[in-house]
Design a protein around this nucleic acid. Structure first.
Length: 660
DNA sequence: GTAGGGTTAG
């Protein structure tokens, strides 16, 4: 039985005398030892209890134990302070620090760490204050302070501390390297990496992951391949390889990823003979499979998956999510049925897969059968209903979710806001807005949903207020939401005004932006402006026009009465015209009383949606107004023949807004 | 495996 662990180890880690007295609880209890009193062993036990409770997240209980302790040691205080620091509760940590009867170097270091890990220069200065005041410092104190500056982008001061340190260790060098990387100074990081006195795979791993984050993938690979061997094959080296493979995957460079993957030995070879650490592990395989999945290479992904000798739950989930991405739910289901037990993520994948192909019943049956739901499960199901326009089901589930004690998060609220937009339900929308204010810090996507919701529900001023209160710079989706909001309510001038502001803010419009501004032009009859916008979309912004843009342009030109030009456009556009296009032409023909083209448009529309009465009615009304009663009667007879009933209160104005 | 710094892959 192992006993009395290594005092030498503890000494080498420069622990204090106090600690050494408490190290050997096992000896204390097993009769052979010693000079440690039972009171000390009790303190030791309680200290250990505190740290275990903190580590497992049961912080309140830890505090209770601490409060009840009659005799505390510095370690008891330090543990509590460390707990508060990890929870970023800096004021509470400081209170304990001030109350301590006596402090050691760890207490000071903990407190400094607490300050520098909070965001903002105010905290950094407070940390520096303590650093300056402390009676004496060790390497940890210097490293903590230095990395504090580095993480807050103050590399000059970090560097100054680095130079002033009485003694540097591996951590100091690694902190400097990653500091440069965090601040985007790749060249200095590499320079520093080259000059480090002690080679270690930890700093190589830090360098590679930093280079990947700075999009310097080729540089990362060069250094990794060059230095990998000399730094010794170990776990960190493998992590570096895996990081880089994932990095290639993120940027779609799947061949480079595979090339690197193939460099990692797969069997026990000379490099991994003894320690067995540097060879592909399950993460390498999973990462590579993920690369293929992201690149749409589901077949290659499956090939690798089948070659794996040892799979974990991530392997299965990655593969299933791959099939979900390409909507192959049959294969996804087969894999799901074969799964070492599916976890919540596996179930969630199946749910979003089935909602993605519009099979809400199957999605729901998986949802109902899963043993343990999390907020993502609820969100997937609610978003599924929303995307498939089953708004009432979405709301029902949203209510049930809260009833069952699952707390909605920003994704839930965003989905439900989209539901409100879809249902044009201002009442619910306002309620969700209140929940947003109470429950989550509004972020860009949430604000976008709010803007869309208020605009759709006609509260355009409320939408504008949220827009105005958003932090700069405004993202393109937000601009689109605002422009679209105005455009859809016929506020063409306002929509175009916001569009001009957007251009002035140097934000690149997208195809969505142009759908909105073009439709605004159509509604406002701004013919020349509409044509110019269409041209600038193609020539200035290089955006390929879509069918929606053509529909708006047909609308713009048609409303101006240039019906033949509109017809030419339809004949020459690179798409099959849809009901929006024909609807725009028909509407224009109606306004300008062009019976001939109206007939062409109406016939096309009837072909596209034979069961709808709108085109018949419009055509009938127009013939009637023109006194062409034979034609009118023919239309009426056609309706009867095809068993079309005139829907009550259906006019072209309504259907036009539905179509656009 | 009682408390503190850098790195810590999918």
């Amino acid at each position: 039985m192992r006993c009395c662990f290594k005092v030498a180890d503890l000494l080498s880690k420069t622990r204090t005398q106090t600690q050494l007295r408490f190290t050997c609880i096992r000896c204390v209890s097993s009769r052979s030892r010693p000079n440690i009193s039972s009171q000390n062993s009790e303190i030791y036990t309680l200290n250990k209890k505190i740290s275990n409770l903190i580590r497992t997240g049961r912080f309140t209980e830890a505090r209770l134990v601490f409060d009840k302790m009659v005799n505390r040691t510095i370690v008891s205080w330090n543990s509590m302070i460390g707990g508060y620091v990890k929870r970023r509760e800096i004021a509470k940590a400081r209170k304990l620090f001030d109350e301590m009867p006596e402090r050691d170097i760890v207490s000071w270091n903990l407190m400094i760490q607490g300050y520098v890990s909070c965001h903002g220069n105010r905290f950094l200065e407070e940390g520096r204050n303590l650093f300056d005041k402390m009676p004496d410092r060790d390497c940890v104190s210097w490293n903590t302070m230095m990395s504090g500056y580095a993480k807050n982008g103050r590399m000059d001061e970090a560097l100054w501390l680095f130079d002033s340190m009485p003694e540097k260790n591996v951590v100091s060098w690694n902190a400097l390297i990653s500091g440069f990387l965090q601040n985007g100074d790749v060249a200095s990081a590499i320079e520093c990496f080259k000059r480090r006195p002690e080679k270690n795979a930890e700093s190589l791993s830090a360098l590679v992951s930093g280079l990947v984050q700075n999009e310097k993938l080729d540089e990362a690979e060069r250094i990794l391949v060059e230095c990998g061997d000399e730094d010794g094959g170990n776990d960190y080296l493998l992590r570096a390889y895996n990081t880089l493979i994932a990095g290639y995957g993120h940027r779609g460079r799947v061949d480079d990823a595979r090339h690197l993957f193939d460099r990692i030995p797969c069997n026990l070879g000379p490099r991994n003979g003894d320690n067995g650490t540097f060879k592909r592990n399950v993460v390498s395989w999973n990462t590579m499979i993920m690369c293929y999945v992201k690149a749409g290479g589901i077949v290659s992904a499956r090939e690798l998956f089948d070659q794996m000798t040892e799979r974990d739950i991530v392997s299965w989930n990655t593969m299933i999510s791959g099939y979900v991405r390409v909507s192959n739910m049959q294969e996804a289901s087969t894999l799901f049925c074969k799964m070492p037990s599916p976890d919540t993520q596996s179930w969630n994948s199946m749910i979003s897969g089935f909602t993605g192909i519009g099979n809400l019943e199957l999605a729901r049956s998986y949802f109902e059968r899963m043993p343990q739901k999390n907020v993502i499960s609820w969100n997937s199901m609610i978003a599924g209903y929303e995307k498939n326009e089953e708004y009432k089901e979405a709301v029902k589930l949203f209510i049930q979710m809260q009833f069952e004690g699952e707390k909605p998060d920003r994704h839930t609220l965003s989905s439900v806001l989209s539901v409100c937009s879809g249902m044009v339900d201002l009442h619910l929308g306002k309620q969700i807005h209140q929940m947003v204010t109470k429950m989550v810090l509004p972020d860009v996507p949430i604000n976008n949903s709010l803007i869309t919701m208020y605009a759709r529900c006609g509260e355009i001023n409320e939408a504008q207020t949220i827009f105005n209160e958003m932090e700069l710079p405004i993202e393109v989706i937000t601009w689109n939401a605002m422009i679209g909001g105005y455009a859809s309510h016929g506020f063409a001038a306002e929509a175009l005004e916001v569009f001009k502001l957007m251009k002035r803010s140097y934000v690149q419009p997208t195809y969505v932006t142009f759908i909105s501004v073009l439709s605004a032009c159509a509604h406002a009859g701004l013919v020349e402006e509409g044509k110019l916008l269409f041209k600038s979309m193609v020539n200035e912004y290089g955006i390929q026009p879509r069918l929606e843009h053509y529909a708006s342009l047909v609308d713009v030109i048609g409303r101006s009465g240039q019906l033949n030009e509109a017809m030419d456009l339809i004949n020459n556009m690179p798409f099959e015209p849809d009901k929006a296009v024909w609807g725009a032409l028909l509407g224009a023909c109606r306004v300008h009383n062009n019976a001939e083209l109206a007939r062409v448009a109406a016939e096309a529309l009837i072909k596209l949606e034979p069961e709808s009465s709108a085109s018949y009615v419009l055509l009938y009304n127009m013939f009637a107004e023109l006194g062409q009663w034979d034609d009118a009667t023919e239309v009426r007879m056609m309706m009867e023949r095809n068993n079309i009933k005139k829907e009550v209160g259906y006019s072209w104005v309504d259907s036009s807004s539905l179509v656009s």
